[in-house]
């Protein structure tokens, strides 16, 4: 049985730099990230469990959104006419958020980014359950990180475990957790 262990969210309008300074402070790569990656990174910091920074293949990172990398895509597009920016271009991929979380935490398991029309708990629960068909995956850091603009986003994340001691991971409990 899959269970939900923890939940974290970042309200729209949060000053991400201030949050970074309060919670982390020693990871300058943060300042190179686009808004979606900053959100994913900060959510993962809140959910990270001990021991930290130990390579592990059994932790998956599954990220969902509607906007993908669109917010940063607009920033990159602005540079295209004159001097296309390589450091903006690398963030024009919807899955870089999963890579940033994996790099920071040394999560060497599956990482996947899904784009859905809207946050739909039925679909998210189904996709997460399906990801656990990978027999190495024992837990998954899952998140809905939808950055529509740098100051307009929805961002929350939760940890799903195989046979953990949290509530059962199902549509009802995901609804309940998200709406808390």
């Amino acid at each position: 049985m899959l269970t939900i262990k923890q939940f974290a969210s970042i309200p729209a309008g949060t000053d991400l730099t201030a949050l970074y300074r309060a919670r982390v402070g020693d990871y300058p790569k943060f300042f190179k990230m686009d808004t979606a990656c900053k959100l994913g990174f900060l959510l993962a910091e809140q959910l990270a469990d001990e021991p930290r920074f130990t390579p592990r293949e059994d932790r998956a990172v599954l990220m969902f959104s509607t906007s993908g990398s669109l917010c940063n895509d607009r920033h990159y597009e602005e540079t295209v006419r004159e001097f296309p920016s390589p450091s903006l271009f690398v963030y024009t991929l919807p899955n870089i958020i999963t890579g940033e979380i994996a790099i920071r935490n040394k999560y060497e398991g599956e990482t996947s980014a899904y784009v859905l029309e809207r946050f739909n708990p039925e679909t998210v629960v189904a996709l997460v359950e399906q990801a656990f068909q990978d027999t190495v995956t024992a837990s998954a850091l899952c998140g809905w990180v939808d950055a529509r603009a740098d100051d307009d986003f929805t961002a929350f994340a939760f940890l799903v475990e195989r046979d953990g001691n949290g509530k059962e991971f199902n549509v009802e409990n995901l609804y309940g957790t998200v709406n808390q």
């Binding site: 190179k32 001097f83 390589p86």
Partner: peptide, 13 residues
Amino acid sequence: SIDVLELIVLLER
């Protein structure tokens, strides 16, 4: 490596 590429842009710009 990405910083190197950004510095190349910096020189050109």
